[in-house]
Write a protein that binds this DNA or RNA. Sequence first.
DNA 1: TTGTACGCGTTATCAT
DNA 2: ATGATAACGCGTACAA
Lengths: 339, 339
Amino acid sequence: MARRQRSSLTDVAHAAGVSIATVSRAMSQPEMLRADTLERVRAAAARLGYRPDHVARTLASGKSHTVGVVIPTLNSPIFADTLQEMQRSLDAAGYQLLVASHEYDPAGEFAAVDKLLAHGIDGLVLVGGSRPEATWKLVESAGVPVVQMWCGRSDHACVGVDNHAAGELVARHLLALGHRRIAVITGRLRHNDRQRARLEGIRAALSEAGVALPAAYLTEQALSVPGGRVGCSILLELADRPTALIGTVDVIAIGAIAECHARGIAVPEEMSIAGIDNIELAAHVSPSLSSVEIPATRIGSETVERVLALIADMTKAGHVMLPIELVERHSTGRPGETR
Amino acid sequence: MARRQRSSLTDVAHAAGVSIATVSRAMSQPEMLRADTLERVRAAAARLGYRPDHVARTLASGKSHTVGVVIPTLNSPIFADTLQEMQRSLDAAGYQLLVASHEYDPAGEFAAVDKLLAHGIDGLVLVGGSRPEATWKLVESAGVPVVQMWCGRSDHACVGVDNHAAGELVARHLLALGHRRIAVITGRLRHNDRQRARLEGIRAALSEAGVALPAAYLTEQALSVPGGRVGCSILLELADRPTALIGTVDVIAIGAIAECHARGIAVPEEMSIAGIDNIELAAHVSPSLSSVEIPATRIGSETVERVLALIADMTKAGHVMLPIELVERHSTGRPGETR
DNA sequence: TTGTACGCGTTATCAT
DNA sequence: ATGATAACGCGTACAA
């Protein structure tokens, strides 16, 4: 029992010669007290090193001043940016962020949500809208405001981007450069609506241009640099080798560049490569990576704004679509004549 | 008040026709109940969708089954690895991880610790041992077990690596290759004992070899890829340009490689570059980065093991030093004869 | 302006 | 094996 070293309201009340209610007010509604009383209480509190107990406060008030966020993984530059900003914004508002991750496992997400809910969060933030009904049931039955990030179902608030459009943007960029043999490395599509939307966007742009996406030109890999390398090497083995390659996230695209480099394939001369996310590193690899800017930081701040609003009054908030844009760099170019 | 949709012990007790004590036992010590009673309670609980309230449980028991960790930033691959593993290990033990970050600001760290403590954490994890006395006072007065990661003061438990040795390793590697003009790009040294230790290690190795580290050969930059680029460009402007360059973290070293590449300086032919951390990306940049492996994941798991042990019995645990090793890749070579 | 007293949902200590 | 009931530390009507 670590507890009981810390002093409580009762201790301070005793020391200041007032009731615990007065001390409680001194902490939350100072203006309700007479100046001298307030001073006396504060002095006593300071002397005893009193610190309010958040747990008791939560139990009594029903508000924990805490919002929970469940993300697929901590190990992603894009999520890290968003989290960082969420933490900042929430902190500024006197809230605490509770993070849980689940490694792209639906059961793990359910467990994480359950745990967070039990911890008495005031608001919940999820990534994407695709999850088992059981999980949705759980959060709905808890009566806690939810906001989805990146993309999500229409029956709950969402702050995100048009992932479908992001896919179209990269694909069209490559098409405009003259590519016709365009291959795609995605993350696992199962349980990942962001990936699916991006891929669909790519598909739409290609078919619109009368370009096919053969099954052999599509490979699902881990959302990591090694994943990108593996995917790239598979595509490079093809008899009818593509002239361009889309990674549905930058880390995959960066892996693809690495693999080409390792095999002595010139980028973009022999192979154009583009990604989506525009993570910081994209500008610094060589060649620098053409990508689609996803405003991760802003997703974080807007999301926080949303949850806090929902916590304040349970007004239904709608969907917010943040702008995205193509960032052309040096990893993409016209298809080589050689072939 | 979102609360009060969820059913409580009382509700279940009522529904099952038993006392709340019995329900409580059904949840925590099922073996104490008669089989049929247990069954009845469980049925009622399931029917009402009962979920124990962690907050109330914490208040009553004095244990929150939660450990807090305060890190400099979420935006670092090395910390991300550690956090990921901590989350995994803690989850397996039925604990929840509470993360806070402070962007390398001591005041921010104090605030974060204060907040975490108020939230009733059972254990606290910090990075490094260098912080204002006020912060140490705070955690000590809270009576919560603490373990430091990476490195730390001797009066508290610590799971880390020998950062000094890490610095020595890279420096010696470069010295062994024949370099004599070795420059260093570190992160900000203030409030960062890991960086200081690494730099001191480098200094020690250099002076041992009779090689000087002129002030001009040392630059403090942000712990990021752009930071590495800036640092590198400064060092490249020098009249007496170094032949090798150490980034005290891999992201900085990777930035340096990017800068050399942008300027058409061949690595390692014209400039050798090495880092510390051995993040995943190090193996995939080109040229691949020579680095010192820091077992980030293992730091996470061992740290968790330690806090949990300390929480179980307040026995003082000592310092654990995890092994590190040099990983030679292709960003380092013998100094060019040209000059 | 300040004090009293009850409730928040559990755990834990006594009884029974 | 099960039931009362007092904490836990705080918020907050309601009284004074």
